[in-house]
Amino acid sequence: MLEVSEVNSFYGEAHVLNDLSLSVGKGEIVALLGRNGMGKTTLIRSIMGVKPPSRVIGSIKWNGEELIGLPSFEVARKGIGYVPQGRRLFPSLTVTEHLTVLKPAHEKTGWTFEKAFDFFPRLAERRQNRGDQLSGGERQMLAIARTLMTDPNIILMDEPSEGLAPVMVRHLEKIMAELRGEGLGILLVEQNLYSALDVSDRLYVLETGRVVHSDVTANVAANLDSLTQYLGVH
């Protein structure tokens, strides 16, 4: 579905991604691991067509169609959902407005307003609140619900568990598994190794802008040492 091949991204002169290749299939959760500053967010932004990075070369194909060079709104309209790092909700919009302001990418839409509230009952209770009046967990739910309203086929999630209490992280994992059940692909940027191991099907480890390790998660879980050397966790 999503095929990233030999992508190089630059911030001005700084070369941040280096011949990076990976893929995400339908109904698959792929985790992207790595320490801070290794290029995870840059990769997500490169796929979305968000600037900076100022220059992206290589190939990012979506169902065979090249995405590099498209403005970000056109990338999104092809069915690529985006949950940015730090949620980035709109402070002047209510919960309801976050969910009604966007148009679905396709005419047929599986996701409706009601379904989003069924999926995230907490948001239904808070529907008149503005984005900046929610708790951390509610904000993350809203950031995911918001992009679901565009009816994506894949969601790029940039550190969704950041700043969440463990109980919320587990809830988030459940939601991701349910979305996978609906046939969505998820590319998950995660700092939390154990959360990533719980939820993902495959994983990639990035170091200084290149893939240094990739495997099926089930294989890795049995032998964590191979991973922890890259991530600096014990």
Binding site: Y82, F90, V101
Partner: peptide
């Protein structure tokens, strides 16, 4: 209003 709050994010959600 969303665009004024955060133009980059609303664009990355499919809005011109």
């Amino acid at each position: 209003r969303a665009g004024v709050d955060d133009a980059e994010t609303i664009a990355a959600l499919g809005v011109n």
